[in-house]
Write a protein that binds this DNA or RNA. Sequence first.
RNA 1: GCCUUCGUAGCUCAGUUGGAAGAGCAACGCAUUCGUAAUGCGUAGGUCGUCGGUUCGAAUCCGACCGAAGGCUCCA
Length: 596
Amino acid sequence: MTESIEASVDLKTLERDERLARMRHSAAHVLAEAMVGLIPEAELGFGPPTDVGFYYDFRLPRALTNDDLLVLERNMKRSIKRNHHFLMERIERDEASTYWGNQPFKLELLSELEDENITQCSHSDFVDLCRGGHVNHTGEIPPFKLISIAGAYWKGDENNPQMQRVYGALFETREELEEWEKQREEAQRRDHRKLGRELELFTFSEDIGQGIPLFLPKGEVIRNLMESFVRQQQEDAGYQHVWTGHLVKKSLYERSGHMQNYESSMFPPLVDGETEFFLKPMNCPSHMTLFNATAHSYRDLPLRFAEFATLYRYEKSGELSGLTRVRSLTQDDAHIFCLPEQVQQEFSNSLELIKNTLETYGFSDYRVALSLPDSAGKYIDAPELWEAAIQALRNAMEASGLEYVEEEGEAAFYGPKADFIAKDVLGREWQLSTIQVDFIQPGRLGCVYVGEDGQDHTPVMLHRAVTGSTERFLGVLIEHFNGAFPLWLSPVQVVVIPIADRHHSYANSVQAKLKSEGFRVDVDLRSERMGAKIRLAQLQKIPYMLIVGDKEAEANSVSLRVRGSSSAETQDLGETQIDELLTRLLNERESRDIGP
RNA sequence: GCCUUCGUAGCUCAGUUGGAAGAGCAACGCAUUCGUAAUGCGUAGGUCGUCGGUUCGAAUCCGACCGAAGGCUCCA
C-alpha cells in the first residue's frame, strides 16, 4: 500500500464551510461503506456534500426501505466510533480499472479522468475512487441523521439509469442538527397545502385536473386583494391594464419563437379545421399584438401594458406541487415598450415597484440573480442583440446600486433576466419577481414606432412580473405568515362573539357598524360557549375577536382580543370603545401593517 | 415523465395471518345561555381512489389506471 498523500488537517483552523464540506463528504464515504456491508452487490455512484449534509447514489438490486436507513445509520455510527483513518493514495490507471472492474459507474468516472492523477480513499476496509477532501478519521464526523431515500438519475441526466439516493443531514453539533430538524418540522406545520385546507382557501380536485387549483371564497378574497394591491401600484406608476383572452393562434407563436422553444411546455392545441389554437402560456406575443394595433410615435414611449392573465403551462405531472407549481396560473405580467435610452429608467421604476410590494409583504431580505445565456442553450441566435440586452440590463442594475450574482444558462430564450429571490421568515428562498430585457421579440413581431427622424424603429421590450404568479405567491405567503395574514389580507378580519343569546342583537349591530366601514366581519351566533367560539376564531387565525356581553352592550363597547402575530400568542386588550376600535382597525388596514 | 412511498366518512386516523367497515373532530337535531382556546346527549354520514384479476370469501393479495407525497429531471 502506498503512503497517504493527503496531509492531516487541523479542522479548527479551517473555514466553517470547508470544515463542514469535509465532514459531510467523509460521512458519505462511511454511508457507502455501510451500504456495501448491507448490500454487497451495491454499485456505487458518487457522494458529495450538500447544503445541509450529504448524499450517496447507489444502484441496488432491490428498493431500499426506511428500516434499511436505520440499519445503515447504526453501522455508520459503529464505523465512526472506531476512528478509522482516511487514507488517500495515488493509483495507476490499469490498477484502478482492475480494482473497479465490476463497478460500472466508477469505471465511467475513471474513464473521464483526463490526467493520470487518479486517487482513491480508503478507511477501514472500504475504498472509494475520490479526489479528496476528508477529515482525518471517522471519529471526526459529527452528529448526523439519514433522512430520506429518493430516486435520482445518474449524473442528473434523465436519459441515464435511475439510482437510489440516500440523503443525510449533518451539522457540527447536536444542537445545530436538532435546530435543523425543528426548522424542517416547522416548515411542515406551515405547509400551505395543509393550511389551505384548514383555512378553506383552496382545493384541488381529480375531477378538474392536476395542477389546477380551485379557490374557495376565502382564498378568492385574498387573491383579489393581492391583485388589487399590485393593480393600484401599477396605475400609480403609469401602467395601462389590458386584457388579451386565453387562446392564441399557432402562427403568432411561430413568429415569436415560442413554438420552437417552448412547445413541450404548452398544452396540446385546440384544432379548428386548418387552424390550431393554443392556451396562452405567456402574454408577450399578445401584448406585442396590442402594441401593433395602433401606430406609435417615440413620444408615446414608454408604453406599459399590464395584465392579470390566466396562463396554462403543461408542467410534467411529477413537477406539480401545491400552489407553488401549477398548470393554471395568474401572472401579474407587464410589458414595457421603450426607447433604448429609457431602459435604465424603466428598470429602476420596475425595481421600485417590486421593492415596495415585497416589503409590504414583509420580504425585506432578497437577492438578485442575473440570468445569462450559455453557449449550449436554445437561445435565439442574434449575438449583437443579446450583447445589447445584457449590457442594458447590467447598466440598469448597476445604476440602481443592486448587488447581483450572474448565473449562466438561466436566461429566457429571448433575453437575459434579473430574478428577485426573497427569503421568507424560515429563511427559505423563493424566486418571486423578475425583470427581463428583450431586444429580440419586438423585431420578430414587427413592433415599430416612428422616431424623431421620421423613420420606423424597433422598441426595446421589458418583461416584468412583481409577485410572479398569484397562486405561487399566495402559497409562499401562507407559509410566510403561517396562515395568520395581516389585517388587510385576512379573509375574515373580525369576528364578533356574543356571550349569550340575549347579546345577539348588539353583536349584529357591532358587525353592521364595522361592515359599513368596509371590514369583513363575521358574527358567531352558534349556541356554543364563548370559549368554543374563541377557539374556533383562533384556529381560523382571525385577527380580531370582539367579545360582547352585558357590560359591553351597556357601554357601547367590545372586549377586544387580538390574535397576535404568531399563531400561539394572543392578547386580551380588555374593554374598548367602538370608535377607538375603528380607529385602530382603519389605521392598521390602511398601512397594510404586518405587525411586529 | 422517471424512482420510491401512499390513497378507509368533509378533516385526522385505527382496522391483527384474507372472514360482518370503526374512532375523534366537523355536520345535523335537542337540551344548555355560559366572560377569553373544546357544554352534554342524540342523529346521520363510506361502492375502503377507479377498473380488472386471484379466492368459497378482498379495505387487506396481484395488475392496470387516476391522484397525492418525497426526490430526480424541467420551469420561457
